[in-house]
């Protein structure tokens, strides 16, 4: 029997390094590495959200970690599909920048259940881990104020994530059209079947208990929210994803 490897699919990730993130009149990202941020779309973004009191944004430059932050809900890569569905085709992603969501309610109650990271940012994050910003990254922070008690209800943290997702979509639409040749880094991943080798699965038990303790799956965009569905709404039952879907961001941590 011929036990040769079978290539089940390819994912290309093109990274565009962002050199400078500054405030500007519009939300614009350029493949050459300039990014400007404007808060003016925020009122529109939250206009249909009944759990959100208000939202503000901070740009945290690498030398500005010495500042207060509310509890951190998530750190999110800024990626979009340029071709194909999540897990296949081509993804455009930004390096040197990432998004962060923090949330507290109008009573000052932090949006957390088992421990909060509110405090001085530099003491509350171990930088340079897979799940945390690099020390040199610019952090675009979405600081959400939820209505009283909404930090402990599912829709509070969900809407906080949705604010960030809708905002990032403005950049994603621009990134889809980036000229691939201008990328600073290109990675290629293959789902490889190795017939005859030990068959192994990774089983991950993830959050499923409600409020911020949730996992969003199958969003429209990598690491996105919109279009996805919650593992709680699927009864917490197992779902299967391929290695490339996983590393392309087919899941979004809601906690």
């Amino acid at each position: 029997m011929a036990d040769k490897n079978i290539d089940l699919g390819r994912l290309v990730i093109r990274a565009f390094n962002i050199k400078a993130v500054t405030w500007g009149d519009d939300n614009i990202v350029m493949p050459s590495g300039e990014m400007t941020i404007s808060k003016k779309v925020l009122p529109d973004i939250i206009s249909d959200m009944d759990a959100v009191e208000s939202v503000d944004m901070r740009l945290i430059q690498p030398d500005e970690h010495d500042q207060f932050t509310n509890t951190i809900l998530d750190i999110i890569p800024i990626s979009t599909k340029a071709l194909g569905a999540i897990g296949e085709g081509i993804t455009h992603t930004l390096t040197g920048v990432c998004a962060m969501i923090t949330a507290v309610d109008t009573d000052g109650k932090q949006c957390h259940e088992f421990g909060s990271t509110e405090g001085n940012l530099k003491e509350k994050v171990i930088f340079d881990r897979p799940g945390t910003p690099a020390s040199g990254d610019v952090i675009i922070s979405f600081d959400v104020i939820l209505k009283s008690g909404m930090g402990q209800e599912r829709k509070g943290p969900y809407q906080a994530h949705l604010i960030c997702d809708r905002f990032l979509q403005i950049f994603r639409e621009q990134m889809k059209g980036f000229d691939g040749k201008l990328c600073t880094e290109r990675s290629e991943f293959h789902n490889i079947a190795r017939p005859g080798k030990k068959r192994v699965v990774i089983i991950r038990e993830v959050a499923g208990q409600g409020a911020m303790y949730d996992m969003q799956l199958f969003p429209h965009e990598p690491s996105g929210v919109e279009g996805g569905r919650s593992i709680i709404d699927m009864g917490n039952m197992p779902v299967f994803v391929t290695p490339n879907e996983y590393r392309d961001g087919i899941l979004h941590s809601m906690q």
Binding site: L8, A193, P195, R199, F218, V239, F240, V241, T242, E245
Partner: peptide, 15 residues
């Protein structure tokens, strides 16, 4: 489309 595609991806994962 989503659920049917998930079923096919699952079958492929099952080899």
């Amino acid at each position: 489309i989503l659920v049917g595609t998930r079923a096919a991806i699952w079958a492929q994962g099952m080899r």
